[in-house]
Design a protein around this nucleic acid. Structure first.
Lengths: 354, 354
DNA sequence: CTGTTAGCGCATTCAA
DNA sequence: TTGAATGCGCTAACAG
């Protein structure tokens, strides 16, 4: 009970969090020695090291990231912008953490939500002194990305973008759609519709890829405007069902959109895949659920994440020839599940009721 | 072109990011005036304010969060730990951002992944000087939470915990399970099994709630060990199907687990809900997909998020009587969908094949 | 191996 | 309304 803090009068004040000096005083050494120990760099005797670590633990000392980074020339921080509700983004984020582990960089997350636009998300990343930012599926204008890229290395993941100064890691979207079309054509389908993603990441590439693949097979490509949510897929499907021309297969912009398609077909009493085959994109966890059991084009999130981190680190620390932005294209793969089957014979094809 | 940086010799150096002093020099005013303007506090003439803001924008000045927070007594940061793959957590995170918006606190995210345990996630939050932490569905030991709560306000969301010093915002789990049991009993079910969540958040409460509800109806509660992933639900269902005693309804720990249940039943040729009814928990986006169409117990993520933020802020800034931790219980609601129906007549009940 | 010193960018007294 | 000085907690360079 002796030797307590001899500060004047007041008895109950908020317990300040311990700092380097507190640890030093308690251990009877200098501040810089404690700093050396906390950073794990050589320069302290084993005995002191052990004792200081013990004192620090006792006090509950946690290094102050703010002060540490303020002092250091570099932050070694990678900023990641992602959509908190996006299944595919979650896969990429997980991969980014794993990939960053071995690089000496820390990851800082910034979420995009309904109430939090991309610009806000990135501003906090900048304020935090991230050295590079990885943007997952950004929707912002190209010019905005270009401006951002003038300030620090920007790696765009899962959006096909051709903006100067911006690194991109993307799936070969057109090729992926091509795989899906080839698969359907091999199953005898000829009336294949594409429900596109509107302005969503990669939507344009997928639309083009669809057109090219269909034409390659001598078929007529029909694209219907959709979006990235299930409601978009549902609405588009309703429009299709109300139209004159009916497909035997639907290629949705992504898995989530495809669930909306399945939904609407199911409610309309259309059998999948007997009457209409459905293909998604992404191979999110959703697609594998056996009640959905969706044939889909797989984007490899962990490979994309690894490449994205590699690119960011190369831009920052790599040799000169690695410091310029580039495109990294990851090959997609078709995952065949139960939502596709041989095209129905014309006379057995689905007819509108009533 | 006069008055350029008079630094010696070198011509091409890395473009340092602008700081307060750069803006001040360019605008021909003092640093502190720029500071006043950037913080938006009174003390500058409208003319100056406008000009300074313009210069700052031109230079691409972004306040340095590290330095700002180092200087300030308080960080006004709320740390949020969440599982990046958890659908329900995403809903809560979104709600937390929305709720924090009006409080003057910023949100800092820290993800838990396979390779990143909760302790690491929280350590970064502490290093960042968060004033309080909101932990979504933490799995860590109670003692760890108690220790943490000794350092700063801790709000646990979606886990029923009775740890001293810890705030909790949770659903009335037992009541939710009770609603599900009541629903099933009203449909004539008597052989109801519960696939539990093992050690997962709330699992124990749900198990107890199940037992109590069944006994209230004079029925025998059967609990089977499960978990929070779909594979857990699938495995448990296999065991059930191989057992001697067959249920007419299964209550899964959560929606994700329930999809595993549906999956396995589907593969085994068991019709849902004709032969077995299935109920989930959470009402994640998953449950509403019509191909899953799962009757489930809804946890209101946005209400929970709002309460959690309120509690954190009250602990930090509230009047004295608000500064002690407490439990906030959110009522659940049953969402009836297509995975439940009237119990099959005994003679029509599902029989094992072969 | 250890302690001393300076300064990162900013907010904040206090003077002018 | 403005400007000069101080220090937040820490690291880095140097001196003992």
């Amino acid at each position: 009970m002796s030797g307590r803090n001899p500060k004047s009068g007041a008895d109950a004040f908020k317990p300040r969090r311990p700092v380097l000096a507190d640890v030093a005083k308690r251990a009877g050494v200098s501040i810089s020695l404690v700093s050396i120990v906390m950073r794990g760099v050589p320069g302290a005797s084993p005995a002191n090291r052990e004792r200081i670590l013990k004192v620090a633990a006792d006090l509950g000392y946690v290094p102050d990231a703010r002060a540490r980074m303020l002092r250091q020339e570099r932050s070694h921080l990678l900023g990641v912008m992602f959509g908190v509700q996006q299944l595919f983004h979650a896969d990429v984020v997980e991969g980014i953490y794993a990939a960053a582990e071995t690089t000496g960089y820390e990851v800082v997350l910034s979420a995009v939500t309904n109430a939090r636009p991309e610009s806000r998300a990135v501003d906090t990343l900048l304020a935090d002194h991230c050295e590079a930012v990885l943007l997952i599926g950004p929707q912002s204008a190209k010019s905005w990305l270009t401006d951002l890229a003038a300030r620090l290395p920007v790696v765009v993941v899962a959006r096909s973008i051709n903006a100067p100064g911006v690194d991109a890691v993307r799936t070969a979207e057109a090729k992926g759609i091509g795989l899906a079309v080839d698969h359907l054509v091999a199953l005898g389908h000829s009336r294949v519709f594409h429900i596109d993603g509107g302005n969503a990441p990669g939507a344009d590439q997928r639309r083009r890829g669809f057109r090219a693949a269909m034409q390659r097979h001598g078929l007529v490509p029909v694209s219907v405007s959709g979006g990235l949510a299930d409601v978009d897929g549902a609405e588009a499907t309703s429009r299709i069902l109300n139209g004159a021309n009916l497909p035997t297969a639907i290629l949705a912009y992504n898995d989530r959109c495809a669930t909306g398609v399945l939904d609407t077909l199911y409610r309309a009493g259309v059998k999948v895949p007997a009457q209409i085959s459905v293909v998604g994109f992404d191979d999110t966890h959703l697609a594998g659920l056996s009640h959905i059991d969706l044939t889909t084009v797989r984007q490899d999130a962990s490979v994309m994440a690894r490449l994205a981190v590699q690119r960011a680190v190369a831009r920052l620390d790599g040799p000169e020839e690695q410091r310029t932005p580039r495109d990294s294209v990851v090959p997609p793969a078709l995952v065949v599940r139960g939502s596709t089957s041989r095209a129905p014979r014309p006379e057995k094809a689905w007819k509108r009721r009533g």
